[in-house]
């Protein structure tokens, strides 16, 4: 184990300030020598593997601000503090009833033990599970910029088919993020430069030429809140997760659907795809295909075609295109048939 420093500040200002005071404060967050840690289920794991090698850990678990741990439901929507545990959110009655897609995405993630530890903020910022990224003996542009990508011509069954670049094809593996995309959520952040709000769909960045730059955040910027606008029709929302075994596995493909049906016709719909893309992925082409028309297996199939029009498979993951299409059809039909 590499030695590292550990700070446990009590205020947001202090937490952000510690990182802002460091020489490499301008580095993209994953490469920064100081790292925030919340539940630690991703950070501690990756430190043990040598993937993350911070000199300083800033534990945000003791920050005093109560808003960070609160689930606040109101007529305007629901606000989730960044330190709310995954298990707290999945058990919350407002979420289960008003936003089933959130509860379902959390319930099917990781294990109960991990969900008891993990925070929502850490969850959306979890890093890829690409096998080549997780073992430091391989070349990996995301971990070690410019070193190459061993997955590109390696065993890439779990890798992404959407949003890929010729530098990186790593999948974004979280589940919760798809629900946030489908619900049109936004996030609030704090840094020594002040607070800002951004659409959740803007938070993650495509790998492009710089797969090590994963989000719009700065190294000294903390996520404080996740804001989900009220949507009465979000009661008809659903998360479908397809995986190689029944539990405790990342998605091979997943779909979050929020559906507004009127007399059998699609008034509005939002769709996000997981396990298939390099970032939480909104399938807008599929949404457009469906809006205003009836929802049946045929129209869902057309939407699914549209969703994967730009997919780029590699040697072992071409099946994800057909699986992704089928999953999208199934998720749409299951959402349509929900009793709300």
């Amino acid at each position: 184990m590499r030695p590292f420093g550990f700070e446990r500040p009590e205020t947001l200002e202090r937490a952000a300030g510690i990182v802002a005071a460091r020489e490499d404060r301008a580095a993209p967050p994953p490469l920064s020598s100081a790292q925030f840690i919340a539940g630690g289920t991703n950070m501690a794991d990756y430190m043990k593997l040598g993937v993350m090698r911070p000199n300083l850990l800033v534990d945000i678990g003791r920050l005093a601000d109560p808003g960070l741990r609160r689930i606040a439901a109101s007529p305007d929507g629901i606000r989730l503090g960044a330190l709310v545990r995954m298990s707290e959110a999945e058990e919350n009655a407002d979420i289960r009833i008003g936003y089933p897609v959130i509860a379902e995405s959390l319930q099917q993630a990781a294990s109960q033990q991990i969900r008891n530890m993990a925070s929502l903020g850490g969850n959306i910022l979890q890093r890829t599970r690409c096998e080549y990224f997780r073992d430091i003996s391989w070349a990996c542009n995301k971990r070690d910029p410019g070193s190459g990508c061993a997955a590109m011509d390696g065993f890439n069954r779990q890798h992404a088919v959407l949003g890929v670049s010729d530098r990186c094809i790593a999948t974004y593996h979280g589940d919760f993020a798809q629900a946030l995309i489908a619900l049109d959520a936004s996030v609030e952040t704090q840094s020594p430069r002040g607070g800002r709000t951004m659409a959740f769909s803007e938070l993650h960045r495509l790998p492009g030429e710089t797969p090590h730059v994963e989000t719009q955040l700065m190294a000294d910027e903390l996520i404080t809140l996740i804001d989900i606008p009220a949507k009465p029709w979000a009661r008809r929302s659903h998360y479908l997760k397809i995986r190689d075994r029944q539990s405790y596995a990342f998605a091979v493909a997943s779909v979050a659907v929020v559906l507004d049906l009127e007399d059998g016709a699609v008034r509005d719909v939002r769709i996000a795809l997981g396990g298939l893309a390099t970032v939480p992925w909104r399938a807008q082409e599929a949404e457009d295909e469906l809006k205003g028309g009836p929802l049946d297996e045929r129209t869902a199939g057309r939407a699914a075609e549209a969703a994967f029009a730009g997919a780029m498979p590699r040697e072992h993951n071409a099946f994800k295109i057909s699986l992704g299409r089928q999953a999208l059809v199934r998720a749409l039909l299951e959402t349509r048939d929900m009793r709300v």
Binding site: R129, D135, Q158, R245, Q246, S247
Partner: peptide
């Protein structure tokens, strides 16, 4: 090379 990616059945299976 770990139990995340080398799958064995879990109880739910």
């Amino acid at each position: 090379t770990d139990l995340q990616d080398y799958l064995v059945p879990v109880n739910a299976d």
